[in-house]
Amino acid sequence: MLVFVIKRLANAVGVMLTVALIAFAIFRFVGDPVELMLNEQASQAQRDELRERLGLNRSVPAQYLAFVANAARGDFGISFRNQQDVFVLIAERFPATFELVIVATVLSLLIGLPLGVYTAVNRNGLAAQALQFVSVLGVSLPSFAVGILLILLFSVSLGWLPAFGRGQVVQIGGWSTGFLTRSGLIALILPSLTLSLFQITLVMRLVRAEMLEVMRTDFIRFARARGLTERSVRFRHALRNCLMPVITVTGLQIGNLIAFALVTETVFQWPGMGLLFVQAVSFIDIPVMAAYLMVVSAVFVAVNTIVDLTYAVVDPRLRQDAVAGGSHGR
């Protein structure tokens, strides 16, 4: 077990170092950082001074190590665009993205689970077939198009919901939350629905597939033989056995949702990290791009590692396989 934990952690660190290498390469080699940071009137002395301060005179491996050490301390440098500390910029924006992703995840479970059970139980019913088709449709429509159509319907035509922004937010310590005001909650509806749409269809399809498999097993037949109500068989016996993979997938998807939130944030002008990143891309603000890459990858890798480790605790067979095989590809 210990070997597995160490192996898994080493793997996570390795991935993060690779990501750091990519981020560093972007920072160092896409354009000259000195030219990008100073304006054209800067004197040669100023240039040399900045070059010295950024440590660009040192060897490339030494620079990489310094970059990793700084990143580990949360120091990602100064934004090219507005000369602010990048870490502060990202930390300011993080709550908005985090709340959006959490609400989207909760929504996907609240809507996806019942739909999945329904389509599995009434497999050949008309409504279930229609839902299956709608789920293919949901996967086919890109989230930004869905967001735009929702804005068009609920904001432009009906005027019920705001089309952009977070509404009123409340500061609690360093965290700005939209959960505590009416306008903040209303502003969450369209973006979270847009972000969760793909996730809803994912959960629904997964639950359906798992339920179909579980409903065929013997213990369901025995539960029925014991005279339990159909409701009890479905929800207390069958659904419970489907929850493990659903929770895993939901957990693993959180990293993806954070990344995909940048599309939703662009559509709704939601002031999160993703919007910051998209703006940074269009201004070639490289420290912000590099820092965002590092932060999102760190969340992604952390979630994956935690899920893997939890699985190993729950299911001893996985421990054996993972140590012996060392790869998921088989």
Binding site: N11, G14, V15, T18, V19, I22, I26, V30, G255, N256, I258, A259, F260, L262, V263, F277, V281, I284, M289, L293, V296, S297, F300, V301, N304, S327, H328, G329
Partner: peptide
């Protein structure tokens, strides 16, 4: 396969954006 694992451990959308931006 380690290379493949690394690619999979960064969200694909992010990689695609970075590659085109860079």
């Amino acid at each position: 396969m380690r290379l493949a694992d690394t690619v999979l451990s960064i969200p694909t959308l992010l990689v695609a954006i970075l590659v085109s931006a860079v």
